[in-house]
Design a protein around this nucleic acid. Structure first.
Length: 636
RNA sequence: GCCGCUGUGGCUUAGAGGUAGAGCGGCUGAUUCGUAAUCAGCAGGUCGUGGGUUCAAAUCCCACCAGCGGCUCCA
């Protein structure tokens, strides 16, 4: 609460015109003149709502203390919104002002309160003595927010979740459901074991900073931005390139699958009835913005669900259109707790490919579910993750699994995965889905995070009023599938970096997939006189991100730097190559610590690289192709 | 958010109450070099921010900010 005290000879005001939030007043109280008053201009702020009682008391104490010091005869409370940019809601503001009026009255002070929500003219004569102008800020005491959060009313879903119990199993490729205690891990199931431990037990401390955080900085991919809210990162040109390529790839894959791309708003009113349940369930997880006076507050979306459901509600769908798929590459915001944020793994602002499929019934939903399960595998494969790189979790309600056909369906999913998967069975449904799967990546610190996921949603069609017309002309609720084929784009980048790190630990030279490598081919002239030949070769290499290390450095130095940047193809050009019109190429994926050099002509190299880029998006190099002209974005 | 640890030029870091030092990177010059760091010189620091203790603070104390780990959480 912001307070401005003016000790006045008199104040005169007139309520001229109503604003939208005006309180009703009698005709006689429109005009007032008060002599010898301590005028208290007040802005009630948003945070005051958390502990109104305390704020009212504190503010009243302050007012009385000033009142006594200056020897005023009475107090005028004057609502003055312009003292703050973070106002409380009008309704609460009026209440708090009234409480303050009563508080002062009960302490024996003569009080007048100017009407709230009116455009008022006023004349004020300030006495001008040293204490006649003072301002105060009343802060909500420490801990009030936490208290508030705890008493926050819990939705039914949240209560149910607390009561819900779940049980873990493993299922092998033959469809045997095995109790976790009875499962024996073989060597290649080490990651499954780590994943299960992560899901079910406490972990011990690791005193390493996550490898990908170091890499994302060193490779000039992304970095923290301490001037923003934590978890909102900056991306350098190379990182933005990788991100754009991944986005394009996922977007293309989903379009090919038959989804229509849409765009929906990133912010929504907190007062929309369909959105309220979500907000109640995760009260502290929103970025919220205070609406202007008389307007509802807004929150930033944490997924594309709302936008697409609200769109779905207004569509007229026939059973003939189903299954209907819409997709969005959605910038999403989740105000994760401070300690949960890590590099590119867990962010507050991230990019979520989000596809929703409207299906006419559970049969169709399951059919689609399986197709999307396979879609997710293909998309991850395309990004650079084989099924060895992730662990499958399938989660469902007991009720779902009690059905024989469903049981066979789950077994089929495990067969497709081709290796044992983690099963979680809930004894009751506590959120909107009955069945979901995720593909989880296990990183160098043995932490698991979900990449792809599909969920079968049986609740939101009802909540949002989404319907389709069936063959009999009757309206029905569709079953909705939520699918993120790759998981968050940033998280894919995290997993790629962690995977490269793990490769390095295993003695393999770390690198990004060719199509994502910022520089795909680096040409290193031995001396300046070889540059001309190199420049002549460049026009033959269109469609490939090529750069030239034209710095005045030794060949050894340039080779080392290319290696540190994980460049997939490094070509050295000296007298021999100029003479024979070839390139001396080191192919990273075929090299170990000992360099493997191959003499190739330019067209052979081009063909080989193009083969590796097939069916993948391409963007040109975002920085100068000459290293001598390049700016460093990160030191070291 | 809570608990613990950390914070020194662009990067990595030495310094533990008494004049901030180095390597990399940068700049300048020399070197035109054949597969993981060519040589020399120069510039660059509010010691995360704000308070406090002290004759004196990077160093001790407090608060805040950011990062890391744990708890928690992951729609």
């Amino acid at each position: 609460m912001q307070l401005l005290f003016i000790h006045s000879d008199y104040i005169e005001y007139e309520a001229k015109e109503k604003t939208r939030v005006a309180e009703p007043i009698s005709e006689s109280s429109r005009n007032e003149r008060v002599e010898e008053a301590l005028v208290v201009f007040i802005a009630v702020e948003r945070e005051d709502e958390k502990d109104a009682r305390y704020v009212v008391e504190k503010a009243s104490e302050e007012a009385i203390s000033v009142f006594n010091k200056v020897n005023a005869e009475r107090i005028v409370l004057y609502p003055y919104a312009h003292l703050s940019s973070e106002l409380a809601s009008p309704g609460r503001s009026i209440e708090i002002l009234r409480e303050m009026e009563n508080e002062l009255l009960s302490r024996g002070v003569e009080v007048k309160r100017a009407p709230f929500g009116w455009y008022k003219s006023f004349t004020l004569r300030c006495k001008g003595h040293p204490l006649s102008e003072l301002s105060r800020k009343i802060k909500v005491r420490e801990g009030a927010e936490a208290e508030e959060a705890e008493v926050e009313k819990k939705s039914k879903a949240l209560e149910a979740e607390e009561k819900a119990e779940s049980h873990f199993f493993f299922m092998d490729e033959k469809g045997n459901l095995i109790r976790t205690a009875d499962f024996e891990f073989v060597e290649e199931q080490e990651n499954l074991r780590k994943f299960f431990v992560y899901e079910s037990e406490k972990r011990r401390a690791v005193d390493k900073i996550p490898p990908h955080v170091e890499l994302m900085k060193r490779l000039e991919i992304a970095d923290y931005e301490s001037s923003s809210d934590p978890g909102n990162l900056r991306f350098y040109p190379k990182g933005k390139l990788i991100k754009t390529l991944l986005e394009d790839y996922v977007r293309n894959s989903v379009a090919e699958y038959g989804a229509a791309e849409v765009e929906t708003p990133i912010m929504y009113s907190t007062e929309h009835p369909s959105l309220k349940d979500y907000l109640e369930r995760f009260p502290a997880r929103q970025y919220s913005m205070v609406g202007k006076v008389g307007k509802p507050d807004l929150f930033l979306r944490f997924s594309a669900c709302f936008g697409q459901f609200l769109m779905g509600k207004d569509m007229s769908m026939s059973y003939k259109n189903l299954p209907l798929k819409i997709f969005e590459l959605a910038s999403s915001f989740r105000k994760e707790k401070r300690g949960e944020l890590v590099g590119l793994r867990r962010l507050r602002k991230f990019t979520m490919p989000d596809m929703h499929t409207f299906c006419k019934d559970m049969g169709e939903a399951l059919e689609e579910f399986k197709k999307q399960y396979e879609l997710c595998m293909r998309v991850l494969e395309g990004i650079g993750f084989s099924s060895k790189d992730y662990e499958v979790a399938i989660r469902f309600t007991k009720e779902f699994y009690d059905d024989d056909a469903n049981k066979r369906f789950i077994e089929e999913l495990v067969r497709i995965a081709g290796k044992p998967v983690l099963i979680e069975m809930w004894d009751q449904r506590f959120f909107y889905f009955v069945l979901k799967f995720e593909f989880n990546f296990v990183d160098a610190l043995e932490k698991a995070s979900a990449l792809s996921t599909v969920q079968i949603d049986v609740e939101n069609a009802e909540r949002y009023g989404i319907k389709y017309v069936d063959a009999n002309g009757k309206e029905n609720r569709p079953i909705i599938l939520h699918c993120s084929p790759s998981g968050a784009i940033e998280r894919c980048m995290y997993a790629l970096l962690e995977k490269a790190y793990l490769d390095k630990e295993g003695g393999v030279l770390p690198m990004l997939p060719l199509w994502l490598s910022p520089t795909q081919l680096r040409i290193i002239p031995v001396a300046e006189r070889h540059l001309e030949y190199v420049e002549g070769v460049l026009p033959l290499l269109t469609g490939i991100r090529v750069d030239v290390d034209d710095r005045e450095e030794t060949v050894s130095k340039k080779i080392r730097d290319a290696g540190r940047e994980w460049i997939p193809y490094v070509a050295v050009v000296g007298n021999k190559e100029v003479e024979k019109k070839t390139l001396n190429v080191t192919i990273r994926e075929e090299s170990s610590d000992k360099k493997q050099k191959v003499e190739m002509d330019v067209s052979a190299l081009k063909e080989r690289i193009e083969e590796g880029l097939k069916n993948k998006p391409f963007w040109r190099l975002p920085v100068s192709y000459r290293l001598s002209e390049r700016t460093k974005f990160v030191g070291g």
